[in-house]
Simulated scan of single mutants.
Amino acid sequence: MSVLPERDAVAGLAALGSPTRLRLFRLLVRAGEPGAKVTDLVRLMATPASTLSHHLLALTRAGLVRQERRGREVICTADYARVAALAAYLTDSCCVGLDGADPKD
């Protein structure tokens, strides 16, 4: 059984359920460990800062993104450990068959 609680998996998947948040998250994955400045994300997403802030907040609350202030800039980074845990949650029982399956698992 996966280490990630079901409620956290639901929150992560729900956060990625928005096309804008999914594109934003994929940008952060592309940025890698250094992350990306919010100002760069605004430019790359061609989204108003207030809208982007709303989407970043949803991703952060779901545990998929970390934010860190460095001087005047806010750097956003994908939380790769949480992403790995979410992927593990989805594939935890891959190909074991349906015998004795519990729909809550």
Rank of each mutant, 00 (worst) to 15 (best):
H55T: 02
Y80S: 14
G100R: 04
P19L: 05
L16K: 06
F25N: 10
H55Q: 07
V74P: 03
A85Q: 04
T91G: 05
A14Q: 09
T39S: 15
R21H: 03
L28C: 09
V29T: 11
P48G: 08
L27M: 13
P19C: 06
R70S: 06
E68T: 12
R69V: 11
R61T: 04
L24P: 06
R82C: 04
V74A: 15
E6L: 02
S18P: 01
M1P: 15
A81C: 03
F25Y: 15
L57H: 10
Q67M: 08
L44H: 11
L41K: 10
V29M: 07
L28K: 12
R72I: 02
G32V: 00
L24Y: 05
V38P: 03
P48H: 15
T51K: 12
T60H: 14
R43N: 07
A78K: 07
R82M: 13
G100C: 04
R23F: 01
T91V: 07
G32Q: 03
R43W: 04
I75A: 11
T47W: 01
Y89D: 04
T47I: 07
L57E: 15
L16G: 06
A36V: 01
R66S: 14
R26H: 05
R23S: 11
R61P: 01
S18K: 02
L57R: 13
G12N: 09
R70C: 05
A49F: 00
A85N: 01
V74I: 14
Y80V: 13
R43S: 12
M45C: 08
S50M: 05
L98H: 02
T20G: 12
G97R: 01
D40E: 12
S18C: 07
A101S: 10
R21N: 10
L24V: 08
C95K: 01
L86K: 06
